[in-house]
Amino acid sequence: MTTVRDPSLDLLHSVLNAVTLGAVVLDHDRRVVLWNDWMSEHAQIPQQQALGADFLALFPALRGSRVDAAIDQALRHHFPSLLSQSLNKAPFPLYANAAAARLDDRLQQAVAVTPVDVANAPRHCLIQINDVSIAVGREKLLREQTLVLRSQTFADGLTGIANRRHFDVAIEREHRRARRHGTPLSLLMIDIDHFKAYNDHHGHQKGDQCLIQVAAALSGMLRRSADLMARYGGEEFAMILPDTDTAQATQMAEAIRARAEALAIAHAHGGNSGVVTVSIGVATRSVASAVNIDTLIGAADRALYRAKKNGRNRVEVQTPG
């Protein structure tokens, strides 16, 4: 028996393989019934291996994911779903080439899962995957440039380090990150000892120079990009140390205290040492003590107050909460 193939089917087949997006169709039992060339190339799974395979057997890491739920919505409830790159990043292990695959450097993806009605068969679903890597890169650049422009209004006019506004934005961002990732977040409150006496004795110009010098030296000690030192108030500075526990933060605070003292800025009324020193309060938000921003700042403030009361030029730690 000979069968005459409908030529339009060949055309559809060619078109499907020519489009520059991933197209996968699953039947009602979630078996792959269609897998275009784009998928073969970027998933590095040939068509003959994909066809007939269980979807979750091909992508076991997607079990229980939003992709999994979207397929369920399409097959069972007839609802389409959109999975944006911003909220889902790159759910499928798809790569530009073999080198990217070795580095697990995935294509950035926008995914749509839509129900498909099929004659004489239970409902199927179509998964479309768009490579949005270029758009993601472009927006990242746009954001970086905006940040550079904005950082000019985020800098303290005198010392050039971050200002209070920048601190407020950064602590909010780092607090959110710590909460989502379950990582510790430490905050140091740093205050120059007897600064009023320094100003009164040496004059305001010298006072300003002292602030500039201390700010530059201490901010220069930060090595990681997410660390931030900001001028919090007159002679008070705040340092945000993400992913830093109490022990590490205390060690850092001690190094900062020593660095300030080593600047050896003469201070006739600066207590015993005769030089400018700083007092530091340390507080850490941890999983065990998952406090909000105000409580964290309050704890660092209290620690600083204790450092002042206990003789200055020292570090004190306060557990928040």
């Binding site: 959109l82 999975l83 944006s84 790159q85 911003s86 909220l87 889902n88 926008a110 949005v132 758009a135 993601v136 927006e139 746009l142 954001r143 905006t146 940040l147 904005r150 934005v169 909010e172 961002r173 959110r176 990150r177 989502r180």
Partner: peptide, 20 residues
């Protein structure tokens, strides 16, 4: 999205997130 650098309007990617 957890993004703090906001532009004047939703970018294309953000519009897509809004759609989701």
């Amino acid at each position: 999205v957890g993004e703090t650098v906001s532009l004047q309007e939703l970018t294309d990617m953000e519009q897509e997130a809004m759609c989701e």
